[in-house]
Every structure is written in C-alpha cells, then in structure tokens.
C-alpha cells in the first residue's frame, strides 16, 4: 500500500510547489513627462506601482523645462544654480554623453529648439539671422561645473529631453529590483525598457513604422534591455512644402535631414540608449556606423527614408521584419574598425 501511495503524495507536493509559481501582471498608465506612460509589472507587491508613478512625476518636477520650480527651469532662468545631488549627477552624465558623441548630442540645443517653435509657441522657420545669432549660444562647452554648481555661459539654455526618459527608466528598473519585481515592461511614451521575461519568454518589442502606417515595421525579442527610438515622424511641421522635424542639429541649427527615418538603440542602460538614439540620428549613416565601430557596446536598428533597414549583428537572431521583402543589412562591428 505504501509503495502505491508514495507517487501520489509526491505529485501533490510537487503540485503545491509549482502552484507557488502562480503569476499575475499589473498595469498602471498615466500622463507624465509630456507623454503617456505605461508600466506593466509581474507580481508587484503592495504599492510598488504607486511608487513608480511617484518616481516618474518627481523627476518630471525636477527636470522639466516648462514647469515652475523645476531645477532645470530655474537654472535656465538664472544662468547659475547649485543642483541637487540627483540632478547634478544626471547633468554630469549628460555632459559626458555630449562629449562622447562629439556634440551630436547636445543638451544646450534648447535656444534653437525654441526658435523653431517646438516646445512652446508657434512653429516657424527662423530667419538665417536669428539662427546665426543663436548658434554661438549652443554648445555643451558653455556649461561649467564646480562640484554641483552649474553655470551657463553665453546665454545658453538646457533641455534634458533627449536623455531624461532613458535615465528615468533606469531608475524605475532599480526601484523594481529593490522591490523584488524581476519582470516588467516600462514604456515612457515609446521609450522602452523590458526587464526579465514575459511568461518565461523574451519580451517582443516592436519598432513603430516611421512611414505613417501605424503598424510595427519590425520587432526584436529582448530581455533586460532598453530600447529607444528617435525620429521626426511624429513631431514636425510643414512650411512652403518642406517638412521640418523637431530634432535640431546643434552644429547647423536646422532640423536633421539625412538618410535616417528612425534610429533605434538597444542596450542595457536606458540613459545611454536614449542619448545615443538622438546622437546617431543627428550624425547620419556614415558617422553613426563609424561611431558604432569605435564604441560598439550597443545594438541598433536604422530605418532609412528609402525603406531599407540596417541592424547590428548582435540582434540578428532576435530580429524580425513585418515585411519580409524589406532590404536588410546586418552590420558587423569588425567591418567598421
């Protein structure tokens, strides 16, 4: 009798053990950072999602260029300010990003952005006089740092919009880890971080088509990665038949107009992916691939205006196209060295 009973008891014990693996996902969505935030977490304890929402909104209060009381706004208005530890750290990180990308990413490009009417005011094409008067203001070397005190020279102004979302996703991931949440999906208006897995499999991340047809152009299966896309297909205006996007080239003062329709950067750090996606978009194809050759610690998906796409070899196996006929190039890092 005992020998017959044992297997069934064993099964019952195992069943209970497996049952403890039961899982549920919770979702929170809200407006913040001038965009729509979606956070899905597996087995979030108690108020982790509320803490996440608070984290995002706190950063918005500190980093916004338009909200009164934000440290960045105060710095822009007074020209010099001692920043809080947190914001100072982000500032220093951002400046190093500007340096690393040789100015393709430039957090002081705000005066130009304002001139084109993106952020506040009417969108318009500035006159060439206006542009030439503003260009000297732009340049991250206009920011001087002593400890946590920052000074803006030459009337330059800051906007951390190109890096803030990525930075915040990193903080959210850290919050989740501290609260025992291993699997989560964070999307700050399309600025994505996928932590862990979804039901045991990698997260399936789609890249929006920049050609205006509302579907995903391609997708990548990922785990524990940040995915950030830069493009001008959503925020732009038309004047006299020409299209002007919202990403201004800090060197020329005009919106970027090169082979890229969108640039997606994939990596382990949200801040760097955010910074690089803007920087590579500004650099254009040749310089971007050169940069990859030198610094290749990330993956990318470059969608060209002609509809073709180039990807780094690291994501080759996890990558899929919506349309099998899209011309695809896989770039090896060694080619570019």
């Amino acid at each position: 009798m005992k020998k017959r009973l044992f297997p069934f008891v064993f099964i019952c014990v195992l069943f209970c053990a497996v049952l403890c693996g039961c899982t549920r996902y919770e979702l929170t969505e809200f407006f913040a950072l001038d965009t729509f935030v979606t956070i899905t977490a597996e087995k979030p304890n108690g108020d982790v999602l509320k803490k996440a929402e608070k984290l995002v909104k706190d950063y918005e209060d500190k980093l916004s260029v338009t909200k009164d009381g934000s440290e960045i706004k105060r710095l822009n208005e007074s020209g010099t300010l001692t920043l809080s530890e947190e914001v100072a750290a982000l500032m220093k990180l951002s400046l190093s990003a500007c340096e690393r990308t040789d100015g393709a990413l430039d957090i002081t490009v705000y005066p130009l952005v304002k001139a084109w009417g993106f952020t506040v005011g009417e969108k318009k094409v500035p006159s060439s006089e206006e542009l030439s008067s503003l260009l000297p203001l732009v340049g991250y070397e206009n920011v001087t740092v002593t400890g946590n005190a920052f000074t803006l020279e030459n009337g330059t102004e800051l906007d951390l919009g190109a890096v803030a979302k990525g930075y915040i996703t990193d903080k959210l991931v850290k919050l989740f880890k501290e609260n025992d949440v291993k699997n989560a999906l964070i999307s700050l208006g399309g600025n994505v971080y996928v932590a862990g897995k979804y039901g045991g499999r990698d997260w399936n991340v789609g890249i929006k088509s920049p050609f205006g047809d509302g579907k995903a152009f391609c997708g990548v299966k990922l785990s524990d990665k940040a995915v950030v896309t830069s493009g001008q297909y959503q925020r732009f205006f038309e004047e006299n038949g020409k299209v002007y996007g919202h990403i201004i080239d800090p060197a020329t003062g005009v919106p970027v107009d090169n082979e890229f329709s969108s640039v997606t950067v994939i990596g382990e750090n949200g801040f760097w992916c955010d910074a690089l996606s803007t920087a590579l978009f500004v650099m254009g194809k040749d310089k971007a691939l050169e940069f990859y050759g030198e610094h290749g610690d990330f993956d990318f998906i470059l969608i060209m205006k002609d509809g073709s796409v180039a990807i780094s070899e690291g994501i080759k196996d996890a990558f899929s196209l919506a349309d099998e006929n899209t011309p695809l190039t896989v770039i090896k890092r060694s080619d570019k060295n």
């Binding site: 979606t38 399309g190 996928v194 399936n204 890249i207 929006k208 920049p210 995903a216 995915v227």
Partner: peptide, 20 residues
C-alpha cells in the same frame, strides 16, 4: 488633450510593446 486610443483585446500585433 489627454486623449488615448488603445486596443482592448490586443491580438492585432504580436508585440508586447512598440517603441517610437
């Protein structure tokens, strides 16, 4: 305008999330 249009039974994509 705090307007959102989203899918209720999102089986249209195979994707969990879309960047952009």
């Amino acid at each position: 305008h705090k307007l959102v249009i989203k899918a209720v039974n999102s089986q249209k994509d195979d994707f969990d999330v879309v960047t952009g």
